[in-house]
Design a protein around this nucleic acid. Sequence first.
DNA 1: CGGGATCCTTATGGATACTG
DNA 2: CAGTATCCATAAGGATCCCG
Lengths: 140, 140
Amino acid sequence: MSIDTARHEEVRRKLAAQARQADPRVEALVNEIIGRVADKWTMIVIDVLAEHGELRFTGIARRVPGISQRMLTRTLRQMEREGLVQRTVHPVVPPRVEYRLTDLGLGLGDAFCGVWIWAERNLEKIEQARAEFDARERGG
Amino acid sequence: MSIDTARHEEVRRKLAAQARQADPRVEALVNEIIGRVADKWTMIVIDVLAEHGELRFTGIARRVPGISQRMLTRTLRQMEREGLVQRTVHPVVPPRVEYRLTDLGLGLGDAFCGVWIWAERNLEKIEQARAEFDARERGG
DNA sequence: CGGGATCCTTATGGATACTG
DNA sequence: CAGTATCCATAAGGATCCCG
């Protein structure tokens, strides 16, 4: 193990210990949050809202290709429930509903930046690992 | 908006732009990775392996309460396929199989530390937001 | 326009039994 | 010990229709 790797791991241990510190509620919340964020749409919605600041329902739908309006509604409701987005209804006809990230939602986006950067940096390693694994499986 | 919030957002935008930069493959990979990590067990397994360095199948199972052996097998196989863990089979009886995180897996754990810290810091805000939302819903 | 309600298909995951 | 194989319950998610 290189010195770099050793230091890397030391830092990681500290961070992990700090984050987990004997609080099962945090563990549960992290799992919920990750579960939510990983529900395939939430992260994308956070991303879109972070980029554009404030959008209407249809505006979000247009920028999240493939999402059904049912899923968009549900996603936004859950995000609203957890305080990640603020939903503003303008009482006009036709209805006008604006969504924007709260500071909490923005913060969650920030927190996931590390994951994005990691993914970008390790994209090829993962694809290579997959290819090697699949080759091994087919071979033996 | 406070100066702090403004700077915060500026940083965030830069990071997001850097992470996403016109590469749809990264976007797809992030979704896959988040999806994987969010599959309820992967993150916990990463955590356990990061803490203990190297463990056998049963050792992991013991430290991940509630996981079925089916799910543990599947989780470890997928992690292996993506190069997150290394699986070492010692040809003895009874079989002895050791699992440990690769540098890639360790890095992914690091990347998610930000999310853990965020969750820890915002635990109460989220619970409060949920309570308020639910109260609003029930009320009208 | 911004949803709610319903139906239906698929994916996920637990329990259990068996094996080299 | 470290899995594999099978079965089954539930949940996620898409398609569609309807409404204020």
